[in-house]
Amino acid sequence: MSRRTTSKKRIIVPDAIYQSRLVNMLIVRILKNGKKALAQRIIYEALDIIKNKTSLDALHVLEKAIRNTTPLVEVKARRVGGSTYQVPVEVRAYRGTNLALRWLIRFAHARSEKNMAMKLAYELIDASNETGSSIRKKEETHKMAEANKAFAHYRY
């Protein structure tokens, strides 16, 4: 991180089909080796699978999944007098969304379905129904923050 100037936050443009910033953020998170067309195909296939399986609006399911997996608090390591404390800190909205997207993709990779589009679709469906690995990760993060509530006065 530069000491001279603060980095400017990039403006997220909506994707081509759904006109949604969330879909574009998901495409960027799933992107590997600069193959954006492949990432888009995976996302759009996953959204089509969601639409067929649940007969609900795929974008609505995606938004609900991200809302359900977004953490409210997390712990950050803070050194005070030679010892390190896990200090609970509230999560800002943008970081919470990023964490939710990261967890959804990570746990979708770990699933055992046929291809990445199906893995992602089923992970999103599970997250929107408040089940699945990404929801468990959110609850684990909240438990960690709750357990270390005694060190909240070290917040910065």
Score class of each variant (00 low, 15 high):
Leu104Gln: 06
Tyr18Trp: 03
Ser112Thr: 11
Val91Thr: 04
Ala37Thr: 15
Leu104Val: 07
Arg79Ala: 12
Leu26Trp: 05
Lys32Pro: 04
Glu146Phe: 11
Ile12His: 04
Met1Lys: 10
Thr69Trp: 09
Thr54Tyr: 01
Arg29Phe: 10
Thr5Glu: 13
Ser7Leu: 15
Arg155Gln: 12
Phe107Leu: 11
Arg78Thr: 11
Asn115Ser: 09
Leu62Glu: 03
Arg155Asp: 08
Ala46Gly: 00
Lys138Asp: 01
Ala65Met: 02
Leu99Arg: 08
Ile42Glu: 04
Asn148Tyr: 13
Leu47Glu: 05
Lys137Tyr: 09
Arg155Ile: 13
Met118Tyr: 14
Ala117Arg: 01
Ala46Cys: 00
Leu31Met: 10
Ala117Asn: 03
Glu45Ser: 11
Glu139Gln: 08
Met118Gln: 13
Lys114Asp: 12
Thr54Glu: 03
Ala145Lys: 01
Leu99His: 07
Pro88Cys: 02
Ile50Tyr: 00
Arg95Tyr: 09
Asn115Phe: 07
Arg92Phe: 13
Ile27Ala: 05
Lys9Leu: 11
Lys32Val: 09
Ser83His: 09
Ala16Val: 14
Ala65Tyr: 02
Phe151Asn: 06
Arg29Val: 07
Val87Trp: 03
Asn68Gly: 09
Ile11Gln: 14
Tyr122Lys: 06
Val13Ser: 14
Tyr154Glu: 07
Ser20Ala: 01
Gln19Met: 12
Ile135Val: 07
Ala16Tyr: 14
Arg10Tyr: 15
Val23His: 01
Lys8Cys: 09
Gln19Ala: 08
Val75Ile: 11
Ser2Pro: 11
Ile105Trp: 03
Ser128His: 04
Leu104Ala: 05
Val87Leu: 04
His60Ala: 15
Ala58Trp: 09
Asn129Ala: 14
Ile135Ala: 05
Val91Glu: 01
Ile27Asn: 06
Thr141Tyr: 09
His153Tyr: 07
Leu59Glu: 05
Arg67Leu: 08
Lys9Ile: 13
Ala65Ile: 02
Ile17Cys: 10
Gly81Ile: 06
Leu99Ala: 13
Leu26Ala: 04
Tyr94Ile: 15
Tyr85Cys: 03
Glu113Ser: 10
Lys137His: 14
Glu63Ser: 08
Glu130Cys: 05
Thr69Asn: 06
Val75Leu: 04
Val73Asp: 14
Thr131Ala: 12
Ala65Trp: 00
Thr141Ile: 14
Leu101Ala: 01
Ala77Ser: 15
Asp57Leu: 06
Ser55Phe: 13
His109Cys: 13
Phe107Gly: 02
Ile11Arg: 15
Gly81Asp: 15
Asn68Met: 06
Val89Cys: 06
Thr97Ser: 05
Met25Pro: 07
Glu63Cys: 08
Ile11Asn: 15
Glu123Gly: 00
Lys138Val: 03
Ser20His: 02
Arg79Val: 09
Lys149Tyr: 15
Thr6Asn: 10
Leu56His: 07
Ser128Asp: 00
Lys35Ala: 12
Ala110Pro: 05
Phe107Trp: 04
Glu63Thr: 06
Glu63Gly: 07
Ser128Lys: 02
Gln19Gly: 09
Ala39Arg: 02
Ser134Arg: 02
Pro88Gln: 04
Val13Thr: 13
Glu123Ile: 00
Tyr154Ala: 08
Glu139Met: 09
Arg102Pro: 04
Ala127Lys: 00
Lys149His: 14
